[in-house]
């Protein structure tokens, strides 16, 4: 099972299920979502997902990647280049930036984020909470409709998920050269930059 990377003491190997149990106690994502997640795990006989982080990643697991690959075009829309090498490279870069953001979180926030991804990855909770079919088959418009529902929801926990996802993606994108260009940000002042870096 995935070992959540952390600098915190006593943070031994943690399974996703252990994470869920902890969250049942701490209630970070609320009993609403946890109830749904637990029900799904029970109904489907699913006790967990892939055990290790995805190859080349420090935090994300294989099961997270299809969701994030669908989320990125949903959040970024036409900020992404058209299909091609440039787009593929940028998406890959953004996935790794998101991965690093997750990796650097403290254990409590890592657990919450892992749980959010779990909910969005498991079939029943995905349909129930996000109202969307398999991520591999979703269109950016469908992803945006899901984001809009979570933004508008009167459940604060869904607003939390909305804000976390937007922050991960937008914060990653606007830290790249493509993001700087999209923000019409010229970059650090060229004179001093040259002075420091020559």
């Amino acid at each position: 099972m995935r070992n959540l990377p952390s600098s915190e003491a006593g943070a031994g190997p943690e399974t996703v299920d252990a994470t869920r149990r902890t969250l049942l106690q701490t209630g970070l994502f609320g009993s609403l979502l946890l109830g749904a997640a637990g029900a799904t795990a029970t109904l489907s006989g699913c006790t967990g997902r892939t055990e290790a982080t995805a190859a080349g990643y420090k935090f994300l697991r294989d099961a997270d990647l299809p969701f994030l690959r669908a989320l990125l075009p949903g959040v970024l829309g036409s900020l992404l280049p058209a299909a091609g090498m440039e787009r593929d490279r940028l998406l890959d870069d953004l996935l790794h930036r998101i991965d690093l953001s997750g990796y650097r979180l403290g254990l409590p926030s890592q657990k919450a984020l892992a749980q959010l991804f779990d909910l969005l990855n498991m079939r029943l909770t995905r349909r129930l909470m996000a109202g969307i079919g398999p991520w591999e088959e979703s269109t950016p418009a469908q992803v945006q409709a899901f984001l809009e529902r979570w933004r508008g929801s009167s459940f604060a926990v869904l607003n939390t998920g909305y804000r976390a996802l937007i922050k991960l993606v937008a914060g990653s994108f606007y830290g790249t050269p493509a993001g700087w260009a999209a923000a019409n940000y010229p970059g650090p002042p060229p004179g001093p930059y040259q002075v420091f870096n020559s």
Binding site: G74, V75, G77, L79, Q144, F173, Y174, Y185
Partner: peptide
């Protein structure tokens, strides 16, 4: 831009057109 986008907190066309006005 990174902090700006996090503060702005939007997605899609709203994010794109809003952040394009950063200057």
């Amino acid at each position: 831009p990174l902090l700006g986008s996090v503060i702005f907190g939007r997605y899609g066309e709203e994010l794109k057109t809003g952040m394009a006005q950063l200057p």
